[in-house]
Design a protein around this nucleic acid. Structure first.
Lengths: 225, 225
DNA sequence: TGGATGTTGGAACGGCGTTCCATAGATATT
DNA sequence: AATATCTATGGAACGCCGTTCCAACATCCA
């Protein structure tokens, strides 16, 4: 019925459409993904795309799912067979998500629009499973899990947002130095703290910063006994 | 020059436009805010609005700034004059942001599009200042501050996203029970953790959950000495 | 009083997501 | 083998969006 033979060598399919969408998203961000651009790239009409995909939301969800799935399997395979210390495993998983969103900033905005996606469940489970291994007491499972997951996706998403709103040409450290410079020039009476940490804002590494947050939460979880 | 007299009793102004925008956003979400709807509500044309506001981005930024400013002053006045335990103060500020985003879910999406807004700086400073009072060692200031701020805005934003994508009529607990039910029916071999915590997902309170995360991070910060 | 200047509001433009539909290719039926 | 049916295609058209343009009006200074 549906797929007895390929009627054309370049037949459309949801997979081909999602792949093209990811290419466009990576190249030009979320605004660049239009059904017209997609149709042009696939040498077809926009109507044909709607035969395989319900709407733009489903397309973005499918693209996100694809990226997250790849990142998760990459992180897991990177850990090899069992025996990894649970805290290290959590860091690896978190970094996997961070890296995926960093490489595909449009994914960051997508989390807020479609949580509970299948690929996300694997991430959720992976984090939760390691908390078990850590010996977190049962009463604290949900809170510990929720804090970690919230932080991971929140931080990665915010990082992607920063990347997204940066002018394409400019480099990150210059933009950051600009903001830090602004902080350093704030009123000392009203903003003593921001003035104080401005140099660290300018110098910080997003990845290290992200991991430091993970470690703080893990340390907090460690106090629950 | 600009404002010697009011030429009309109902003269347009950025304040009136922003107020109308907030009303529309609260009533119908981000999609409902269009320049046509805004013009209709203000009984004018879309062109007139552009005389006071550069574009939709500036309008959303101004609306966000307004809401955050109000929430912050509310949180601060709620604490009375000095002497509040720093951890309690941090919880109050965090809850203020959480409440603001909960009441105006569209604000959640805005953070990612325009961080570094003036109102945000006050929040940033308030959190940082309390870390000082807590006696966090200087080397840990930036990490502790960053983790807290990231968590607060990430969690509040995700919570708003969940609220946003819920059908207007349906109630929260039913939707949550649906998702929890799905978790409970997952493959036990692949998703043991999610099956285990599904009941807690169904029963949890977003606010308590949010605060539990704050407390975990504060506990983690407490281990840095 | 008469330009100059600060505002207004509605028409128009290009682009978007989506729908519609005529049609071609593949399969099923006789 | 001929016909009918169904899957899949691609381009035109619809309504809405953000934004720009501009003719007209209100107010102010000379």
């Amino acid at each position: 019925m549906t797929k007895r033979t390929d009627r054309r060598a370049d037949a459309l399919s949801k997979e081909r459409i999602v792949a093209a969408a990811i290419t466009i998203l990576d190249a030009g961000g979320e605004d660049a993904l239009t059904f017209r651009a997609l149709a042009a790239r696939l040498a077809t009409g926009s109507g044909a795309i709607y035969w395989h995909v319900a709407d733009k939301g489903e397309l973005l969800a499918a693209a996100t799912d694809h990226v997250v799935t790849r990142a998760m399997s990459g992180a897991i395979s990177g850990m090899g067979a069992g025996g990894v210390e649970p805290r290290a495993a959590i860091r690896t998983i978190a970094l996997g998500m961070f890296g995926a969103i960093d490489a595909h900033p449009w994914v960051g905005a997508q989390f807020s629009r479609a949580p509970w996606q299948p690929a996300m469940l694997r991430v959720f489970e992976a984090i939760g499973g390691r908390l078990w291994e850590l010996g977190v007491p049962e009463g604290a499972w949900f809170n510990a899990w929720s804090a970690l997951v919230t932080y991971i996706f929140g931080a990665a998403g915010q990082n992607a947002a920063n990347a997204r709103l940066q002018a394409p040409g400019t480099d990150r450290s210059a933009a950051l130095a600009d903001i830090a410079g602004g902080w350093a020039r704030l009123d000392p009476a009203e903003y003593p703290f921001l003035r104080q940490v401005a140099p660290q804002l300018a110098a910080h590494d997003d990845r290290d910063q992200f991991l430091a947050g993970i470690d703080l939460i893990l340390a907090g979880i460690g106090t629950v006994r």
